[in-house]
């Protein structure tokens, strides 16, 4: 038996190969570019979403606590632990801290208590108060209930600065928080410096407003 050798050779010419290779390269480059752009866009959107979430959260926290506060103070300093007690120590080089005082609305079981009038004619809940502090620690923004800083919780990240306006705090609190940019690649003008949000809240329980 004689085996017929298939002598027919099918293939592309060199020109075809070069053209197809060129087209393929262009398509691959386009796909890669589009992919990179999409990823960049996704990263930008993700960064924006996270940043907006942080900004809204801080504003909502501060607004909620200021609205229910009976007083507010600002100072630079830190908490120090001495004689088994945490206490505030002022220090011009310390972190700018906003401290609001809110009524003790809850009993020890976490249930709301009834309001009463104190001897000066102001509303009180249980007769005591709780302090809530806000300050920047590293790049985190902290919310601290009470005096123990070890129990403070970060409520936002990527914070560059925190400023409480120097003003009479008996009736309102105005503060600003600047966030570092999360997505720094921007063509043209380059990365932005950051985003600053402002909060201006009246102290609804302050004596000055009654």
């Amino acid at each position: 038996m004689k085996v017929q050798r298939n002598k027919r050779r099918v293939g592309f010419t060199l020109v075809e190969l070069m053209m197809s290779a060129g087209c393929a390269s262009l398509m691959l480059a386009a796909v890669l570019s589009a992919g990179v752009a999409l990823q960049r866009s996704f990263a930008a959107v993700e960064g924006y979403s996270l940043a907006e979430g942080d900004q809204l959260r801080i504003q909502d926290y501060i607004a909620m606590d200021c609205r229910r506060a009976v007083s507010a103070t600002r100072d630079n300093g830190s908490w120090t632990y001495s004689s088994n007690v945490w206490s505030w120590v002022s220090d011009p080089n310390g972190a700018a801290t906003l401290t609001v005082t809110v009524p003790n609305y809850y009993d020890t079981n976490g249930n709301p208590v009834d309001p009463t009038y104190n001897p000066t004619g102001a509303i009180q809940y249980g007769g005591a108060t709780t302090t809530i502090s806000y300050y920047k620690s590293g790049s985190s923004f902290m919310r601290q209930i009470g005096f123990d800083p070890t129990k403070a919780k970060a409520i936002a990240t990527n914070v560059a600065s925190f400023t409480v306006n120097d003003q009479d705090l008996t009736s309102r609190v105005t503060c600003s928080i600047t966030f570092s940019p999360r997505f720094v690649y921007l063509p043209g003008p380059g990365p932005i410096n950051g985003t600053t949000v402002y909060s201006n809240t009246f102290l609804r329980n302050a004596v000055a407003r009654q």
Binding site: M64, D65, R67, R68, V102, P103, Y105, Y106, N109, G110, N111, P112, P115, A122, I123, Y125, T130, I132, I145, R204, N205, Q210
Partner: peptide, 18 residues
């Protein structure tokens, strides 16, 4: 008139108050 304003944002089930 308003003499006091408080938002109850506690969550007793999670042991949270303020």
């Amino acid at each position: 008139s308003y003499a006091s304003w408080f938002e109850d944002n506690g969550d007793k089930a999670r042991g949270q108050t303020f």
